[in-house]
Every structure is written in C-alpha cells, then in structure tokens.
C-alpha cells in the first residue's frame, strides 16, 4: 500500500504559473504536480519552456503570476536548500576538482576531517578519483559535468534538477551520467530533468512532462506518454515531426 503521507510530503507543484516577456507568453502552466518518485523528465522542442519551468521549480526565476509549492507551501529558502541544480554547461569554480566539492561541503558546515573522506567518496562515485588536484577547468566535457553532478549531490538534496546535462556529450559520457542519475534516484533523490532526447527519456523516466509553446501538453507515466501519447503535439514530437 502506498504511503500517502510520504507522497504528500514530497509533492512539488506548480499552480497558475505565468511568465510573460515583452508581451509574449513564455510559460503558462495552470497546474502541474510532481508527486511520484521520479525520475521526471521534461521533454519538448527547443523554446518550449522546459528550462524556464525547471528554473521556476528551483526558484531561480520568480514567475509573474502563480506559485511553486513544496508540500503545499510556497517555495521558500528552506525548500531551496534541499534542492540542487545542474546546468547544461557545467559552471565550475576556477579551483581544483576537490576544491569544487569542498566549497559546498564547507558551506554546509562539515568539519575538515569529514570533508576529506566525503570528497574521496564522491570522486569515486563519479569516476574522478585520481583527479583530486587537477584544475576543474581542465576537465573534459563529460568529466566536468560529472563533477557538477557530484557537487550537486554533495548538498545531499531531496530534489535534483538537471537541465539537459548530456546535450553536448558523446554516448559514453552520456551513459556514465545517466548511471549516476539513476543511482541517485535509487537512493531516494527526486530527479527532475530536462531533455529533448526521446531515447534518454525512455531510458530514465518514470514520468514525463511534455511541453510545447510554454504549455504542459501532457504529463503521465513514461510508458503511457511515450507509447500512447494523448496530445497531437506529443504525438508529432515523438514521431519526429515538426512541432510549431
């Protein structure tokens, strides 16, 4: 039997959110509730509002109208502290690999001795052991993104947002990152990830939010959305047709 209390406590929802710039509606989501365990993949063509929705959910962009809610409460600093985000282009500090992880662990108040072992653990998790002292800026694209994910995971987040983290990576690097994401999901981290890669959605998603023109056109279990989409926009996108 499902634990309804747990589901309610981990509900991330969007209500009446609208973002308009220069008279153009960029995001218009009357209601969306992410209450499953995830991973949730937000799928849609370029300019459909996927990244904007992700930034709203993380509180990086405040909508003109409406609210993002966690546990039924408007998103606040405490909620944000339990979230982390990884961007399409990893933004790494101009420091060593270890110092990038140390930065967030230190901010969390972890003592120096504990930080050292936690950094070793994290680097092993991301296959970056041996690169402790290397400058983070000299890592390859895949390694840099893995470090960005590890740094986000170092925050021990309840929710991890990822904005097309593999869009610029080769299949091997993509596979490594997808494994990291799945491992985090298995450990109980709620994953909310933007992608335009249908194959990736098929490999990772438990549920899919399909977007087009700033609207959520469909949200449901991955299998249902991918195999039997209800909306024309989703059908066209999944068939590889042009969606205008």
């Amino acid at each position: 039997m499902r634990d309804l209390t747990l589901d309610m406590s981990s509900c991330l929802s969007v209500d009446g959110v609208r973002i308009t710039r220069k008279g153009k509606s960029l995001l218009n989501v009357p209601h969306l509730a992410l209450d499953g365990p995830g991973p949730t993949l937000i799928l849609g063509p370029n300019g459909s509002g996927k990244s904007l929705l992700l930034r709203c959910l993380h509180g990086l962009i405040v909508s003109d109208r409406g609210q993002v809610r966690q546990d039924g409460v408007a998103l606040n600093a405490d909620h944000k502290a339990r979230q982390a985000m990884v961007f399409q282009q990893p933004v790494l500090l101009r420091r060593s690999v270890a110092a990038n992880l140390d930065f967030v662990l230190k901010r969390q108040g972890m003592p120096r001795s504990a930080r050292k072992s936690r950094i070793e653990e994290l680097l092993a998790e991301g296959g970056l052991d041996g690169k402790v002292r290397q400058s983070a800026r000299s890592l390859s694209g895949g390694e840099a993104q893995r470090l960005a994910i590890l740094r986000a995971l170092a925050l021990d987040p309840e929710t991890l947002f990822l904005d097309e983290p593999t869009s610029a990576l080769d299949p091997n690097a993509t596979q490594m990152i997808e494994r990291m994401i799945l491992r985090a999901s298995t450990r109980g981290v709620r994953i909310v990830m933007v992608t335009h890669d249908i194959g990736q959605a098929r490999r990772l998603a438990a549920d899919i939010v399909m977007m087009q023109g700033g609207h959520v056109v469909e949200h449901g279990a991955a299998k249902q959305v991918l195999d039997a989409p209800k909306s024309d926009a989703a059908r066209r996108y999944l068939a590889g047709g042009l969606v205008t």
Binding site: R55, L60, K80, V91, L93, R94, F103, L155
Partner: peptide, 24 residues
C-alpha cells in the same frame, strides 16, 4: 557566468563577493 550556479547553491550576493574575488 557564476550567477545562477551560486544562487542555486544558496550563496547570497554579498557572500558571492569573496568567491568571485578568489576565482578571479
């Protein structure tokens, strides 16, 4: 470059100053 990442990590504008000075 750092703005969104630092905000995501919960670093305030004021607290970002030493981070930016060190990285620059």
């Amino acid at each position: 470059e750092y703005s969104e990442q630092l905000r995501s990590l919960g670093v305030s504008r004021l607290a970002s100053v030493p981070v930016l000075l060190w990285d620059a």
